[in-house]
Nucleic acid binder design. Structure first.
Lengths: 236, 236
DNA sequence: ACCTGAACACCGTTCAAGT
DNA sequence: ACCTGAACACCGTTCAAGT
């Protein structure tokens, strides 16, 4: 009774049934690997193992690795924050919301962050993000041209800074620690005559990835948008 | 007379003399390759070929590839804009200057941009950049805590957005074109009832890497810094 | 002491061969 | 039609062997 059904194929073989492979099945396996091993673990070899299939059979369903990664990006996006992106009615709060959701999402999948930041996926989640940001800019009082530019500036800022923070997380442990420590060690020993400002402020210097920085930057950019918007609203 | 000196070692061998290899010689070769083939061409194999040496002999002078890349980053930085980083006396103009120099430099070496943005090199060029920015923030009228945060925000913004733009440049040609075209093709066909703002503005949408965006973002951030600085100066 | 050669453990990708 | 096996052209890196 104990090892009844799975007995024969116990440890070694149990081959996948024919036709059981598909894009969605492969993406599900990729998600699992990304969640478990991070992104550097996402190889065709690992996918094959996870799927109990030959690694090269994936090529029947995806043109190449780029094709697979783009599909994975959109799936993760929708799952990770698709449902949370609901307007609050306040443009500034809305921009804060989308920016923070993207930021958190990138930090959750740091190995994919740079690709998420740089690629255009042409898929529903992306359409929805753009629509959401454009609408907030309109409600902020920006005219059409300003809204388009502000949306891009705001989006590029959010994705770029988030990807930078995420990439700090993917550095080899030793490099990350050395880099972080530099701001509390090397920078405190610089000569005051050559680097007076560093010497004066050396106790206060923050590492590049300090968690408070994102919000500071976000609020500064929101201030700048608000001040441009105010100029318009003043005409009311 | 024609092929006199170089005759014997014409095509095939001409081995490097012993002890002629060093960190600086290797970095010079790496610069040459980076300039010529971009960064994806910078492999130990290519370095060996460029140096007329065995690829593995590089390991006598650099711990690993990361060690080599960090050294290369600082060398390129110093050479590319080290001499141009001179204060104008105007804090806002100074921040504009350093931001644009970094931006241009990243676009010149797009394959290294992400590493340049995320790593702390602990070397003179980096010290100098930090000192320069801190001094500008002080002259803008920010207090110590604000200056430290503003420097980080400003630096992270500059490096992150520049690295994002640079990484767009390193995409495979076909992916880059498809991604750019999406904003003038797919986005113009979205249904107006579901995406009213995209539909209304679809003629104006810019690709992610539009060259005007960096300056727009930069001026917005400078505005935000100026407005915080003004609050202080108002007390004068 | 310095450099080379051969090998290792990976990658993504191609393609002929099996079922 | 779908999947596998073997091979290819790369990576970075290690280490014993040559000079």
């Amino acid at each position: 009774m104990a090892a009844a059904g799975a007995d024969k194929s116990a440890a070694p073989k149990k081959r996948r049934p024919r036709d059981s492979l598909s894009r969605s099945v492969i993406i599900a396996a990729a998600e699992k690997i990304a969640e478990r091993d991070g992104l550097e673990g996402l190889t065709f070899g690992a996918l094959g193992k996870e799927l109990n299939a030959h690694s090269t059979s994936i090529y029947r369903h995806f043109r190449d690795k780029d094709d697979l990664v783009l599909e994975l990006i959109d799936t993760l996006r929708a799952k990770s924050y698709g449902a949370d992106l609901v307007s609050t009615g306040d443009w500034r709060e809305d921009l804060r919301l989308i920016s923070r959701l993207i930021h958190e999402h990138y930090l959750r999948y740091p190995g994919l962050a740079m690709q998420m930041a740089a690629r255009t996926t042409r898929r529903p989640t992306e359409f929805h993000n753009v629509e959401f940001a454009l609408d907030a800019m309109r409600r902020a009082g920006l005219d059409d041209d300003e809204a388009v530019v502000a949306t891009r500036v705001f989006g590029n800022f959010t994705r770029a800074v988030s990807a930078l923070e995420a990439s700090l997380q993917t550095l080899p442990e030793q490099a990350r620690l050395m880099d972080e420590m530099a701001w509390t060690v090397e920078y405190r020993q610089l000569p005051a005559d050559e680097y007076p400002n560093i010497a004066r402020l050396s106790e206060k210097l923050l590492p590049l990835g300090d968690p408070s920085l994102f919000n500071h930057a976000l609020e500064m950019l929101l201030d700048a948008i608000a001040s441009r918007a105010t100029n318009e609203v003043a005409a009311d």
